[in-house]
Design a protein around this nucleic acid. Structure first.
Lengths: 242, 242
DNA sequence: TTGACTTATATGTCTAGACATATAATCGTA
DNA sequence: TACGATTATATGTCTAGACATATAAGTCAA
């Protein structure tokens, strides 16, 4: 994530090793797919112990700059062409973290055999059962977001009996179901009647939309659409570059 | 980033330690500002060496979940009230990467002494000169985004003479000016007359907005607002958890 | 009360080993 | 040739130490 700077600014060895490699990757000297020197080679080059180069390489791997493969070595990764990453734990945590009072309201909960629309949304073919939930999150008693969620009961049978009248489904899932993969799509819409009412905004007002799909090893867990008032809510990201 | 999963899925100790702490943070059990047990306490609790807990804590620090302070301890960070990270190199690269034909049109370019509004937007106090640019990006001849940009000439004097009629300012800056920090804010608005015309959409149609500020070590370089048609454009992020 | 100095302590980095584990490469066999 | 078993090897994790360093907290003097 960060760029290589002068060695003078980075007295520690592992940072220098990391910066050296990072620089070669970012300048294109080592293109995607290029094999980085083995740990034992770097150990020899820098005259340090293996743990030191291992720390440097581990951090580069954590930053997705390189990929490490046992027995094969470490390789420069293809840059995520538009890597948009959005990490949301859950809304309750988000609001609480902002120091505001969290409020939750279950608007609707239905247990049904998946309709064609449900199946399309979840990306499944078989017509199993699903739970459909509509609820509202608020911060300091002001509507913060409305949530429209579908949970695949064949993946999460427990969800059929969970009490979503008090605990938001996102938090419940977070505590009960581990996930392996997720996808977020951010877009914008204008509020329809139902949304406008739930968010207490005007019909036609802009809304920020986050669609999230969550899988557990190729098995769909849940699909959720979150609608935020577009003028008040913002997704902010701050990051370092070179 | 990742969620806590069963210990069975995470055989290694440092990952379990990391997951345990992560879970407590994400569930709010350990709120922002809370002091995490000292390394030596975790060493005692898990019965392992200090390097093992150090690795767990280092990764949490790298992921910005905690902050480590010498002599004081490790503390839960206030989550970037919604930690959204969005890295976009530039629109031209984005469109090209999608395999679509990139088109660019300069709509307006003005060189002026910064107005009060300009200064507010750039976050500077002195009334230096700025370049204000409005342009349009298209993909396969369909409007993709309109860009409204301000460049601080006291930070980037070269921008005064750069030819933005052919090269988009984002690409030009990327190649000519190194940056150290950036901030993105994503929101939603409805199209006004000018935007509707530029994007060839209806007035009142939803638009996704990305505001980006770029700095070079505390010095503002540029402020840009990108407007995308909200129904067609989407920011997609896919990531792994667990 | 303020400022300068000292001290205690938690983290930061590093070492020289160890064993585990996934897997590329090799070899042997059908 | 194709496939299965074996081996070599690079990474993954871990230990029990070490010294460095930033800094919170305490001490003492002006």
């Amino acid at each position: 994530m960060s760029l290589a700077t002068d060695a003078a600014d980075q007295p520690t060895l592992y940072k220098r090793i990391r910066a050296d490699i990072e620089k070669r990757i970012l300048t294109g000297e080592w293109p995607p797919g290029h094999r980085i020197p083995f740990e034992h080679e770097l150990v020899a080059r820098y005259g340090c112990s293996r743990m030191t180069v291992n720390k440097a390489l581990s951090e580069l791997a954590q930053a997705d700059l390189i990929e490490r493969r046992r027995r094969a070595g470490s390789f420069v990764r293809r840059p995520q062409h538009q890597s948009a990453v959005l990490k949301i734990a859950d809304i309750r945590a988000e609001i609480t973290a902002l120091g505001r009072a969290y409020g939750y309201e279950l608007i609707d909960r239905k247990l049904r055999v998946a309709t064609a629309a449900d199946r399309g949304r979840l990306g499944v073919k078989k017509a199993g059962k699903v739970v459909a939930i509509t609820c509202r999150h608020s911060a300091d008693r002001v509507p913060f977001a409305v949530e429209d969620r579908l949970i695949d009961l064949s993946s999460v049978p427990n969800a059929a009996t969970a009490d979503f009248s008090r605990e938001p489904p996102g938090s419940w899932l977070l505590h009960h179901v581990p996930w392996t993969e997720a996808e977020h799509t951010i877009s914008a819409v204008v509020a329809d009647d139902r949304t406008a009412e739930a968010l207490d905004i005007a019909v036609g007002a802009p809304c920020l939309v986050i669609d999230r799909y969550t899988w557990r090893s190729a098995r769909t867990i849940t699909a959720v659409r979150l609608l935020y008032p577009g003028d008040s809510h913002r997704l902010v990201a701050r990051f370092k570059g070179g």
